[in-house]
């Protein structure tokens, strides 16, 4: 199937695809044609940014000021301090660099493994005909609803029994498991947007499923993979629960978030530190997003789908 339910243009599918590449070149047009549209977009952008801006400013303010006056007062009465960042980075005897490495070591495989598995599974659901396919697909995507919390004790028991507890493997495996239902669901959607004729053509040429997957579909899906990769990266990077449960008791394994969560203090009231901590942990995800952003601007299927 294609993405479309053509309403306006009953153009035969094949004919349309042929002209698409050319048409795209013409397509650079401005959408901000009406001022109303620009204003709506601007309002949304401002609404979405102001709260975060508030936190950014807050993270540079002295503790007492934070409790006594709003962050917007800095515009009339600027007082800034780096104390909060100092305490977050160097207080508490934690080696921030080591935690950063842990976060990275946790995150990369926890992104690569589920995406690879989900791509293969999504391919099977989209392009291999086998009995029970739809039921199985629905079952897999329905698993999204299982709260991670109910899986903690069964999974940890298995890890303890197999001697894996407290190693990176438990976190990689767990994140992969938890990501799979959504990853399969999303990637399946992208996978199906690729015109069937492409796959058919390759099949006519005698290509097997593995070849079709790697040579035909994968290149087209690169942007979609990058996009989902960013989501998965963020979820893993910001995860606290999985790390606490499976890396617990293993100081060599715990990631950044565990330390940031502790900044709230034993009784949870040190938000001047939380503000700084939140920005320390946001840096890398932001860099990843910005560096992969060209994919988001281009769309999730690489370029035009060529015939």
């Amino acid at each position: 199937m294609t993405t479309t339910t053509p309403v306006m243009a009953p153009v035969p599918i094949d004919e349309r695809r042929l002209t698409r590449a050319e048409r795209r070149a013409v397509a650079a047009r401005t959408k901000f044609s009406s001022p109303a549209a620009s204003i709506i977009a601007l309002v949304i952008a401002v609404l979405w940014t102001v709260p975060t801006l508030g936190l950014l400013i807050t993270s540079f303010r002295p503790e007492l000021d934070i409790r006594r006056s709003g962050w917007w007062t800095v515009f009339t009465d600027p007082t800034f301090t780096l104390d909060n960042y100092n305490e977050v980075l160097y207080g508490g005897g934690t080696n921030f660099a080591a935690l950063f490495v842990n976060s990275l070591v946790i995150t990369l495989p926890a992104v690569v493994i589920p995406i690879t598995l989900a791509l293969l599974a999504a391919y099977a659901f989209a392009w291999i005909d086998f009995p029970g396919r739809n039921i199985l697909f629905v079952a897999v995507f329905a698993l999204q609803v299982v709260p991670i919390q109910v899986t903690l004790i069964p999974l940890l028991s298995i890890y303890v029994d197999t001697g894996l507890a407290g190693s990176f493997w438990t976190i990689w495996l767990s994140h992969s498991i938890f990501a799979l239902p959504l990853a399969v669901f999303l990637l399946h959607n992208f996978m199906k947007e690729i015109p069937a004729s492409l796959v058919e053509a390759a099949r006519m040429d005698g290509a097997g499923h593995v070849k079709i997957f790697f040579q035909v579909l994968l290149p087209l899906l690169t942007p979609a993979i990058a996009a989902f990769g960013v989501f998965q990266f963020l979820w893993v990077w910001n995860d606290l629960l999985v790390a606490l449960t499976f890396a617990g008791g293993a100081p060599d394994v715990v990631p950044l978030t565990v330390r940031v969560a502790e900044l709230a203090g034993t009784r949870g009231s040190d938000w001047y530190l939380l503000a700084a901590g939140a920005f320390v942990s946001i840096v890398l995800p932001l860099v990843v997003f910005l560096s992969l952003q060209r994919y988001f601007v281009r769309g999730l299927l690489a370029g035009s789908v060529k015939g």
């Binding site: 940890l156 629960l241 008791g249 502790e262």
Partner: peptide
């Protein structure tokens, strides 16, 4: 002595105890 503190201590302790960890 290996020290570990967490604000999620209560929930986590029960999970760990029940998992044999």
């Amino acid at each position: 002595v290996q020290y570990e503190g967490s604000r999620e201590f209560e929930a986590q302790l029960v999970v760990r105890v029940q998992s044999g960890n």
